[in-house]
Design a protein around this nucleic acid. Structure first.
Lengths: 127, 127
DNA sequence: CCTTGACCTTCCAGTTACTGGAAAGCTTAA
DNA sequence: TTAAGCTTTCCAGTAACTGGAAGGTCAAGG
C-alpha cells in the first residue's frame, strides 16, 4: 500500500503518516526502487492504534510506550494501566481548571449588559 | 521601572514581558540612554491586564483586542462581551470533549486488572 | 513514444506562547 | 577598577503537525 491509501485506510492525513515515519513512531516497513514508502498490515494496525491513542490525548511519547507494550506479548497490564491512569489524572486536572475558568467567566459574561455603553464588568475584572 | 521590577510587580516572568514588547502587545514606553526598557504605571497596568486575560485562556490576539477596548473610553460593552462569550463557548466545547474522553478512559482503566499479565482492555480498545 | 496528471519524495517555514541560553553591553557597590 | 548583577539582542527549541515548493515516478491516453 502506498502512503495515500494507507492514510485513507487509517483515517489519518498523509502528512501525518509521513511525519510519524520521520520521527520513528510508525516506520514504513519497506521502500521500493521508486523510493515510495510501502505499508503492510502490521504498519496499518500500528497507525490505527496511534490514531486512537492520540484521540485520547496521549502524547507522542506515550504512544511510543503504548505501541511497544502493544507489540510485547509479555507485557504487564499494570504498565499499560499506569500510563492510562496518568493521562486520566491529567484530564481530571484540566477539567478542574476549565471548570473554574468557566464559572468565573460565565459569571462575568452574565453580569455584562452587552450594550453600546462602555461600562463593563469584564474589563473591570481584568483591570 | 526596569524590566525585572516591572515583571515582579506584574507577576510575570521577565522573558514574557520582553516577549510582549517584541510582539507589540505591551510596548515599553521609553528607553534610556542605556538601551534599557523603562515601564511606567500605564504599561504596568496593561501587563497586569494581559496576565489576567491570559489566565482566562484568551489568546494573544484576543488580548490585543481586549487591550484596545480597555483603552477605548468609547467602547461598547457588547464588543467585550462578544469576545468573552466566544472564549466561554470554546471552554464549554473543550469541557464536553474532556468529559467524554474522561468517561471512556476511566471505564477502560477500571476494567484493566493492572497486574503482571498481558491481558488488557486498554490495549484491546486501541487495537 | 510522449505527454499529462496524479501521485510520491525531501526540505523549509509557520503555527502558539513562550523559554533557555549565549555573547555582549550597562550599572553600581566595594 | 573590578566584579557582580543587571540588561540587551539573537538563535534555537518546545508539541504535533500543516502548508507549500521543487522535483522524481508512474499509469493511462493519444
Amino acid at each position: 500500500m502506498k502512503i495515500s491509501e494507507a492514510a485513507a485506510v487509517c483515517g489519518l492525513p498523509v502528512k501525518t503518516v509521513r511525519y510519524y515515519a520521520d520521527i520513528g513512531l510508525v516506520a514504513a516497513p519497506a521502500r521500493g526502487t521508486s523510493g515510495y514508502r510501502h505499508y503492510d498490515q502490521a504498519a496499518i494496525r500500528k497507525l490505527i492504534f496511534v490514531r486512537r491513542a492520540r484521540a485520547f490525548g496521549f502524547s507522542i511519547d506515550d504512544c511510543r510506550e503504548l505501541l511497544s507494550l502493544y507489540e510485547d506479548r509479555h507485557r504487564s497490564s499494570a504498565d499499560v494501566r499506569h500510563i492510562a491512569l496518568r493521562r486520566l489524572r491529567d484530564i481530571e486536572q484540566k477539567q478542574k481548571e476549565l471548570q473554574s475558568l468557566h464559572d468565573d467567566l460565565a459569571h462575568l459574561v452574565d453580569a455584562c449588559r452587552g450594550d453600546s455603553r462602555p461600562n463593563c464588568p469584564i474589563i473591570d475584572y481584568l483591570s
